[in-house]
């Protein structure tokens, strides 16, 4: 996949951008309960950063450098986590997707972070989105390598 159109400059930029993109995605994720942001958009931002690595370094090198091989499996782990958050209220006899602590009462604060189960749900959505997009990219890249050989 060493395409001549991918220059050293692109690769440098891609590498430099990765960390800020991931930080911004986490910021958007935790921001979700005070301002604009949620798990889905944060996941899309993070996965765009990872896609940039695939585009500039190719599948094998990105997989090796960033250990991305397990990310697609994380999609299903994220889905399981989201389902767990949705279904656990059933054990307490409440309808699905009831969040805790309930509206109106105080949340647990860690610094300026509010911890409620909706945050847990959004984190699983984040993992799910990143896993799915990386999985799509890897599947298409693998199909492409099959042709090249």
């Amino acid at each position: 996949m060493s395409d001549s159109s991918v220059t050293v400059l692109t690769q440098m930029t891609a590498r430099l951008l990765l960390a800020p993109i991931l930080v911004i995605s986490v910021a958007v994720l935790v921001n979700g309960y005070a301002s604009v942001g949620d798990g889905f958009s944060a996941g899309v931002i993070a996965s765009l950063g990872l896609l940039l690595q695939y585009v500039s370094f190719g599948r094998e090198r990105s997989d090796r450098l960033l250990r991305l091989r397990l990310v697609p499996a994380a999609a299903f782990a994220g889905l399981l986590g989201a389902l767990a958050v949705a279904l656990v209220p059933l054990l307490r006899g409440e309808p699905i997707l009831t969040h805790w602590p309930p509206p109106g009462s105080d949340a647990i604060y860690v610094g300026s972070l509010e911890l409620i189960t909706a945050v847990a749900f959004d984190v699983t959505v984040y993992v799910l989105v990143v896993g799915c997009v990386v999985g799509f990219a890897r599947a298409i890249a693998r199909a492409g390598e099959g042709v090249a050989r």
């Binding site: 889905f40 799915c132 799509f136 599947a139 298409i140 199909a143 492409g144 099959g146 042709v147």
Partner: peptide, 19 residues
Amino acid sequence: VIGLAVAALLLSLAYRVYT
């Protein structure tokens, strides 16, 4: 989101046909 998933699916199917 559904549109994204569908686009990815169709692209990979089209790619399979092509290969």
